[in-house]
């Protein structure tokens, strides 16, 4: 039956997987960028959107956090083209990457909104009053006083969300995206069931290493962040 674990095969497969790492990183960064924008909007509306918008934002956040990622991905991937054709926009096929990124961005925006909201709320109210008392406008107070402190507060939880996002992007293969997990699944399919453990341990270790490096960077930032961030 062969070896328990073929170290040489394991060594061979790692560079092949790493060739798809840029794809994974691209998906993570793009999803994070859109997720941060959506999350910020949702958090802002949740906090001071008035009774109606705040309700809607709360629903949005709860929905994005409550729906399993794979269900959201399938909903966006299959639902969006269907929705578009209902609305009269026909396209032979919609590009895969934007839809995959959109579903990750929607999902992560719910978590980021909660991270940002609690970071904002953890800044003491008196800070606002102090800013006001020295003649700052509401916007100035937010930009110069509240926001830098909120960013520092948000760093640990946002960091965790990003790490979660990185591991979640491993699901993109289910829609045929060739990121590192997609590559692993392709190699696995070509192998007719041989050396599966080596392939998936290798891909897992790559995710682990990426998360490990990111955690270290976040630790450093957090230590530095004890001094509130200075903008300009």
């Amino acid at each position: 039956m062969g070896k328990l674990f073929s170290v040489s095969y394991f060594g061979n497969v790692i560079p092949k997987l790493l060739s798809a790492l840029p794809s994974t990183i691209g998906i993570v960064l793009a999803s994070l960028a859109f997720g941060l924008v959506l999350g910020f909007l949702a958090a802002a509306l949740r906090i001071r959107g008035g009774p109606v918008m705040s309700r809607i934002a709360a629903f949005y956040i709860s929905f994005m956090r409550g729906v399993p990622l794979i269900a959201l991905m399938l909903l966006v991937y299959f639902g969006f083209p269907q929705l578009m054709s209902f609305l009269g926009f026909e396209a032979g096929s919609w590009p895969k990457y934007p839809l995959v990124i959109a579903s990750f961005a929607l999902n992560v925006s719910g978590y980021l909104a909660e991270n940002m909201r609690s970071a904002y709320l953890s800044v003491d109210k008196s800070q606002f009053e102090a800013a006001h008392s020295i003649g700052m406008t509401g916007l100035q107070g937010f930009v110069h006083i509240i926001f830098p402190q909120a960013v520092t507060n948000a760093l640990p939880s946002v960091g965790n969300t990003v790490i979660m996002l990185i591991k979640d992007t491993a699901l993109a293969f289910s829609l045929g995206v060739v990121d590192i997990m997609g590559k692993a699944v392709l190699i696995n399919a070509r192998n007719y069931g041989a050396r599966q453990v080596e392939i998936f341990v290798a891909v897992g270790l790559i995710y682990w290493a990426v998360c490990f490096v990111l955690e270290r960077i976040l630790d450093l930032l957090e230590k530095r962040g004890r001094k509130p961030l200075r903008l300009g």
């Binding site: 328990l4 591991k167 979640d168 491993a170 699901l171 293969f173 997990m181 692993a184 696995n188 069931g193 599966q196 453990v197 998936f200 341990v201 891909v203 897992g204 270790l205 995710y207 682990w208 290493a209 998360c211 490990f212």
Partner: peptide, 23 residues
């Protein structure tokens, strides 16, 4: 703990599904 938390769940699921029967 570090490895389990660093591996995507999907990878763990495949490792269990493909790896355990193999062994």
């Amino acid at each position: 703990v570090s490895l389990i938390r660093g591996f995507p769940l999907m990878v763990q699921l495949y490792l269990a599904y493909f790896g355990l029967p193999f062994y």
